[in-house]
Design a protein around this nucleic acid. Structure first.
Lengths: 181, 181
DNA sequence: GTCTATAAAGGGATAGAC
DNA sequence: GTCTATCCCTTTATAGAC
């Protein structure tokens, strides 16, 4: 790979990280290509040298967002089941301050998009369930892993929607108890 | 109340049911005021005689959608805990064919909206948890009701996002088992 | 109270200079 | 490959006729 094409790949990666950050924060419709590019240090015109459409960007950004969230989460916790749960179902995650799992932050955003976006989301979800199944020593089955995944993702998604901080805290801690029991 | 103001209220209610149906199906951004009004049998200009903004309509439509979903669900099932669960976690609900719970269909749509929208969602969620707590005879506590609510809402929301029908079915049935156990 | 017409703003996508 | 400029369409919200 020559210098120019390597540079191009770096730019592409930079756009993807920018998109992952903005999309998970504000959703597909609220984020413009202008926002993504300016956040990456460029202007809108350069975008179409790297992606053919906003939707294509979104699909890839979901995969990037999942990787980003995982690597940021691992900086502050061991790879241990109960630590993973506590970090996922934390106030920090609910507020989206350090990492944002796209499964929880974009859940109902996905349904209306094209098949590539939905496939990306599906791929991330399957990896998430598999991770739980491997780390959880108490009950190794896909069904139990799915239940725990739904409790985790659902708790973050719902607690972010509601307006009552105390209720959100209680919801999170209730689900933490359920997943860890 | 005179004839004209009663007529006005009827029109308002008609707009709300139209909005509830379209918003739960396609989300806030995908639905225009034009769509809502034409689906209610009117044109866009008439809208602002009933609501001051799209956001205000959305907040009220969430409450209406919750009532509509509940009344439609009760037409085909007894008010019984296990029947409620089976209907909520059904293929019909996942596909949104007959009723659509706004808690599950609009989850991550809510976070970006104003406080009135979030308050409406919060109110519906609290009612949902309370309903579960009253109907569930096995474990009467707010914490258990919250866990079940998250499993139900999360399962529908996630299963609608993904692209793999078989996986979605397995996810739904796993959560059904968890809630009914 | 509902209609048509229009203002005003935003954003996806493309063209062409550099 | 990135820039500025522009096209074009959608959509919220308002004005004024009926």
């Amino acid at each position: 790979m020559g210098w120019s094409s390597e540079q191009k790949k770096n730019t592409r990666v930079k756009i993807l990280h920018s998109a992952a950050e903005l999309f998970t924060r504000d959703g597909f419709e609220q984020v413009g290509i202008d926002d993504v590019m300016h956040h990456a240090g460029m202007t809108r015109g350069a975008f179409y040298n790297h992606f053919s459409s906003k939707s294509e960007l979104y699909a890839e950004a979901i995969l990037t967002a999942a990787q980003d969230a995982q690597s940021r989460a691992r900086q502050s916790a061991d790879i241990n089941f109960s630590h993973l749960i506590e970090q996922y179902l934390s106030l920090t995650h609910r507020k989206g301050e350090i990492f944002r799992c796209p499964l929880a932050f974009l859940t109902t955003d996905i349904n209306q998009r094209d098949k590539h976006v939905r496939s990306a989301y599906t791929k991330v979800l399957k990896g998430f369930v598999q991770n739980i199944n491997q780390l959880d020593e108490s009950s190794p089955s896909t069904e139990h892993a799915m239940q725990k995944a739904v409790l985790m993702i659902g708790a973050i998604a719902i607690s972010r929607a509601i307006n009552d901080e105390q209720y959100a805290d209680k919801l999170l801690s209730s689900c933490r108890d359920a997943v860890l029991s």
